Amino acid sequence: MRAAVIGAGIAGLACARQLALAGWQVDVVERADGPRADGYMMDFFGLGFDAAERIGVLPRLRKASYRIGSVEYVDARSGRRTASIDYDAFASALGGRLLSLMRPDLELVLLDALGDAPDGSVRVHYGVPYRASEAADAGTELGARLAGADLVIGADGVHSGVREALFGDETQFVRPLGLRAAAYVIDGAPDLHAEFDGRFVLTDTVDRQAGIYGLRDGRVAAFLAYREDAQEGVDPDEDAPTRLRRVFGGLWSPIDRLLERCPAHPYDDVVAQVVLPRWHRGSTVLAGDGCQAVSLLAGQGASMAIAGAELLTDLVGPCRDAASIEAALGEYERRWRPVVEEKQAAGRRAANTFLPPDRFRLLLRRWALRASTLPVIDALVMRSIAGGTGLKGRTGV
């Protein structure tokens, strides 16, 4: 059996590995020229943590993870700490089943894990746009394999080309939540790294929030989020570095130093969820953010990508004909859709906590974070985080 996986992100690589272990021949095509270098720090827990343990990649993820003692909120004018969140308490509420990972590192772990599959069973092709890969009339070996695939998995993200080919323009399905987020990593800034090594710091600000943290290899990472409506929308002709400097310039001096080094093409996208009535048609199915984007407000996007990939491949892996594949895809959607919808609802509820729209709600969040240090309230807050939106939905990291 042959599968074509469109997209070499978290969901795509997880699907490819598991199908290959189930005896499939898998081609993964990715429009980018290589693994993504930019991304933000993520909290990895919940369903994805359990799935990673079952499929055998958890030891690699532990090795790639970061130790974060706390997240600090600071006043952007003075740099004074206004509140903090104790990660050890959050981890304790989860029974220690929490990892902090850079998104590019998670992708590299999954890429490395393809080596667990039989030799030659997975081939990853970078620099292949989807529309080029779907045409077999070019007469290439890759084109012939893709055209002959028994299963096509569209794991090509929020702006999925596979979804567009199946169901139409993304404006029908992508639901922006009024925010944008950007992230990038810089090198050669030893002064910033010395100041933020071992620290994860977020500005305690209205309508926009900037985060900065030092990585283990001497680099420094930036995370930037803001409300589009507070900035009078986004000019499509304005490049990302210019826009980020306009929105965040003057917010806080360390962020100004980061903005000076912003690369030409940072990760920069709308914060959105994907909602559509069907996830598959025939033997083509969507996975990951292409159908189940919960947004970073929900705090479990990467976790959901791996857990969803495990369920999909568990169901379709044993299939050996078109009828059983289509039945398995229907069962995948029946089981997984309610889980996705629950996380999406949690993400929408978290919007005003993630990025307060006014000073009143900012002060309310600050009070709640300070109160969480009290023993009884701390236990309640941590249980709520563990069972609901997740720490990322609460802090903006």
Rank of each mutant, 00 (worst) to 15 (best):
M1V: 07
A8M: 08
G12V: 02
G12A: 02
A16M: 04
L21P: 05
L21H: 05
A22V: 07
V29N: 08
V29M: 11
A32K: 15
D33E: 15
R36T: 12
M41V: 14
M42H: 15
D50W: 05
V57K: 07
L58H: 01
I68G: 07
Y73F: 14
V74N: 07
D88F: 05
S92H: 12
S92C: 05
A93W: 06
G96K: 13
G96R: 09
L98W: 10
P104K: 06
D105E: 15
L111K: 07
D112L: 03
D112H: 08
A113L: 05
A113V: 04
P118R: 08
D119N: 06
D119M: 05
D119L: 08
V122K: 08
Y126G: 09
G127F: 06
V128K: 08
Y130L: 02
R131C: 09
R145A: 11
A147E: 04
G148A: 14
V162D: 04
G168F: 13
D169H: 10
E170P: 15
T171G: 10
A183I: 04
D187A: 12
D191L: 10
L192G: 00
R199C: 13
V206A: 07
R208K: 08
R219S: 14
A221L: 13
F223T: 10
E228P: 09
D229C: 10
D237P: 03
D239G: 04
R245K: 15
V247D: 01
S253M: 15
R261S: 06
C262E: 07
A264Q: 12
P266G: 03
P266E: 04
D268A: 00
V270P: 09
R278C: 12
G282I: 02
G288D: 06
A293E: 02
A293G: 03
A293Y: 00
V294D: 00
A298C: 03
A298Y: 01
Q300V: 01
G308C: 04
I325P: 02
G330W: 02
E333F: 10
R335D: 03
P338M: 02
E341D: 04
Q344S: 01
F354T: 00
P356V: 10
R359N: 12
R365K: 15
S384L: 13
G388C: 05
T395K: 11
V397K: 09
